Simulated assay, not measured.
Amino acid sequence: MNIFTKFEKIGYGILAVIVLIGLYLGLSDDIYFDVNYAQEDGPVEWGTAIMLFAIFVLSLYHLIRLWTTKKIFWKLGTFLFVVLFLFAAGEEISWGQRIFGVESSEFFIENNAQGETNLHNLVVGEKKINKIIFSQLLFLVMFLYLIITPILFRKFNWFKDLANTFAVPIVKWHHTIAFLVTTIFVALNPASRKWEVYELAFGAIFFLIFLGPLNKEIFEKKQPE
């Protein structure tokens, strides 16, 4: 029995190409990787923004389509995902600042490491918020979600009910494996901006999770019991 859908095969194929090309460029010419492949407003960064925005659109679609058939906590959970991924996509491209040529306010010029209108590059004291929250803390949350959550979901009914009630998509094991394999390949890349590829990989894997979670019944009209 094939565990992958056709769309998942395509998604993982594209992800593999992006990560492997990034690793090759990082090993052969890390300067080219940093300046071109993973540069600000480059293909990798735009790919990440598109993936995050796609999850936002998918979550919004679920919220609108199932609004009349779902309970309040399901709506709340889905709404939080809508807000979260819209925020993440906006942050990734500095809310379109460079696209529309919008100047940063004095606050962001003085307190943002890149002088841009976004929160993840703000500097508090001498530390970037990106390092504290959007890297270290986020990595811990992702580790718990991608590795611990599927174990709890399969083992404890109370956790399964909780996840279904708040519309939390649960990863399949191939999502977890993809995360671990990607982590290894990105870690092997010596380029300084290699984590841009990691962010794109996260976006792609999360899109596949939201598209076809283990508990896919949460996106069906009938309320899961």
Rank of each mutant, 00 (worst) to 15 (best):
I72L: 14
E92W: 08
F207W: 07
G13N: 07
L200H: 03
I99N: 07
V197I: 14
N112F: 08
L84V: 02
L76P: 10
I177R: 01
G26M: 09
L58Q: 06
E116K: 11
K75D: 04
F79M: 13
R65T: 12
L214D: 10
V168W: 11
K216Q: 07
G26L: 07
L23R: 02
N36K: 15
F143M: 11
F219Y: 10
G101C: 09
G47A: 08
P224W: 01
K221L: 01
N189P: 04
P213T: 00
Y198C: 10
V83M: 14
K131W: 15
F210E: 07
F202W: 15
V168S: 06
E103T: 15
V17Y: 07
F143Q: 03
V82T: 01
L66E: 05
F185L: 15
A89W: 05
L208P: 04
M1W: 13
K75H: 03
L152H: 06
K128H: 07
N36T: 13
F7H: 10
Y12R: 09
Q114I: 09
I109V: 15
T176C: 04
N36I: 13
L76C: 09
L80K: 08
F153M: 00
L63N: 03
F179E: 02
H174N: 07
S135Y: 15
E103N: 15
A89V: 00
K71M: 08
I10F: 11
S94V: 05
L66T: 00
L119Y: 14
A163M: 12
L140E: 08
E45P: 02
K131H: 14
E217F: 01
F73C: 07
G212E: 15
E91D: 13
K222Y: 01
A167P: 03
T5P: 05
F210K: 07
L52Q: 14
A178V: 02
Y198A: 14
